[in-house]
Simulated assay, not measured.
Amino acid sequence: MKFVQLDSRGGNYLVVASNVAWLRVGENGQTLVGIVGGQPLLVTGTPESVAEKILAG
């Protein structure tokens, strides 16, 4: 299992990279990260920058 740290304005998340289903533009320059079997997370950064973290992590 590969964990990736995603930063949020309310705290940071450690997410299993293979559980990320989709990315979508959120509010105020943030990104919604869809998680398989869970609620979306609102994290900082653009979808492109979040995708880079997930793929590099």
Rank of each mutant, 00 (worst) to 15 (best):
E27Y: 06
L32P: 04
G34K: 01
V36E: 09
L23Y: 03
Y13Q: 04
L32T: 11
V33K: 02
E27G: 03
S18K: 15
P47Y: 00
V16M: 14
T31K: 06
W22D: 08
E52A: 13
I35F: 03
E27N: 08
Q39M: 09
R24V: 03
R9F: 00
G34E: 09
T44Q: 07
G26K: 03
D7V: 15
L32I: 13
V20D: 05
G34V: 06
M1N: 11
W22M: 04
Q39G: 10
V33F: 00
T46H: 04
K53I: 03
I54M: 01
V25Y: 02
I35T: 01
N28I: 09
D7L: 14
S18A: 15
M1H: 12
K53P: 11
V33T: 10
A21C: 12
P47S: 01
T31L: 07
A51W: 03
G26C: 07
Q5M: 15
T46D: 05
V4T: 08
G10Q: 12
A17S: 14
V36N: 11
N28A: 11
T46Q: 04
K2Y: 03
N12C: 13
G11S: 09
T46F: 01
N12G: 10
N28L: 10
V33I: 08
V15Q: 03
G11R: 04
V25W: 02
R9H: 05
L42K: 12
P40R: 00
M1Y: 07
G37Y: 00
E48T: 09
G26N: 02
E27C: 04
N12Q: 08
P47I: 01
V36S: 11
T46I: 05
V33H: 02
F3N: 12
V4M: 09
A21Q: 15
T46Y: 00
L23N: 04
G45D: 01
S18Y: 08
L41T: 01
I35C: 05
G34L: 00
V36L: 12
R24F: 02
V33E: 03
G11N: 03
A51M: 08
Q30Y: 07
R24Q: 15
R9I: 04
F3T: 12
G10T: 14
G34A: 08
T44P: 07
K2I: 14
T31W: 02
V20I: 12
L14P: 11
A21H: 13
V33N: 06
G29T: 15
S8L: 05
G34M: 03
K53C: 08
E52M: 05
G45N: 06
L6N: 01
A17G: 12
F3V: 14
L55K: 01
F3S: 10
